[in-house]
Design a protein around this nucleic acid. Structure first.
Length: 346
DNA sequence: TGGAAATGTCTAG
DNA sequence: TAGACCTTTCCAC
């Protein structure tokens, strides 16, 4: 999937273009017709991500949400909590290949020079017209080559005909968001939202854990399971997927096979801080990481043209750029694990 | 046209 | 740990 940064970007996109607006909700595919009817005609009041979970609130009256940061202080009591308790909450998990497509007005998110058309499964590539410029959608944005307008408008009929298996369509006056292929898509209540937060490992971008770094360190150190597996455990830390797992361990020069109990506290603190930085970068640019052996100009260029090359992920058999040892591939808990046996020895 | 693969999670055994 | 599930893309045939 779409690792944590993508889901945060979806939440920001929904917030930018649909929050505060009354939306028409439908299920062109039909498989979410009952759920969509619960949301149809309500105002989208807040959208936020917790790790790979997307949560979107809908209510009849948006007034109580004025000035509220999405997802902030969800455990608090008070007037807002009352409004939130009366809201309906859409919970979406993209799973392995879910994705959102945005049409119409698509505001720039983070450092993007133009709006993003598709966020989610990386294989979704659609030719779209962005403003007056032709662009091809890549992992998280249109392929560069053109500095687009500040706020992109996809040329064509609005709303566009749904293409493929659209589970849920949210349509505002100017923007349409299409969801396809999610592994979870349901309408839940506020207690269920809170339960989800309570069960999740810390997410650096969510204000819910008093000391997220200490929580992460403690949860890793509590288990003898391999650290490579613990980083992917969403109750240990939220949002890390297979790519971040592989790359973060490489950057830390840490073997994926070290048991959680045996990882030094300082190493874990460094891992957490790396994750905080990578998540910020990912949300800001849509790019998972830039190479550490590149200078700032090379990094900026790679972000701009999306020519990102991972250090180990997907590079089995190729030489490690740090030590030359062939990158290894193994199966860990039924997922592909990439690492460099030459320099990940910590 | 069929099959494999993909940034994930859940459940049954 | 194997299998199920949600959908699309790409490549071999």
């Amino acid at each position: 999937m779409p690792e944590g940064h993508s889901v945060h970007r979806v939440a920001l996109q929904l917030g930018a273009d649909l929050a505060g607006r009354r939306v028409a909700a439908s299920s062109p595919q039909g498989r979410f017709a009952a759920g969509a009817s619960l949301l149809d005609g309500l105002v989208l009041v807040e959208a936020f991500a917790v790790g790979k979970h997307l949560l979107v609130g809908f209510a009849a009256d948006a007034a109580p949400w004025a000035g509220v940061a999405p997802g902030a202080r969800l455990s608090d009591d008070g007037p807002l909590a009352e409004a939130r308790a009366g809201a309906r909450w859409l919970r979406v998990h993209l799973g392995l290949y879910g994705a959102w497509d945005f049409h119409g007005r698509v505001s720039p998110i983070g450092r993007e020079a133009f709006g993003v058309g598709s966020i989610g499964a990386p294989r979704l590539r659609r030719a779209v017209r962005i403003g007056e410029q032709e662009g091809e959608l890549t992992d998280d944005g249109p392929r560069a080559g053109a500095a687009g307008p500040a706020s992109a408008v996809v040329v064509g009929d609005f709303p566009p005909e749904p293409v493929g298996q659209v589970r849920l369509r949210l349509r505002g006056a100017e923007t349409v968001a299409d969801l396809r292929g999610p592994s979870r898509c349901e309408v839940i209540d506020l207690p269920a939202v809170r339960a989800l937060l309570d069960a999740a490992g810390p997410d650096p971008r969510v204000d819910h854990w008093p000391d997220p770094e200490a929580t992460f360190v403690a949860r890793v150190r509590a288990r003898r399971v391999a650290v490579g597996q613990l980083l992917m455990d969403q109750s240990v830390v939220s949002g890390i997927g297979n790519i971040y797992r592989a790359e973060m361990l490489f950057r830390a020069r840490l073997s994926p096979f070290v048991p959680g109990t045996a990882v030094p506290v300082e190493t874990l603190r460094a891992l957490w801080r790396d994750w905080v930085g990578l998540l910020d970068l990912g949300i800001d640019t849509g790019v998972i990481l830039v190479r550490e052996d590149h200078d700032a100009a090379q990094q900026e260029a790679a972000i701009a043209d999306r020519s990102i090359r991972f250090a180990v992920y997907g590079r089995a058999g190729e030489p490690c750029y740090r030590c030359g040892t062939p990158v290894a591939l193994a199966d860990m808990a039924s997922r592909k694990l990439y690492w460099c046996p030459g320099c990940q020895t910590g």
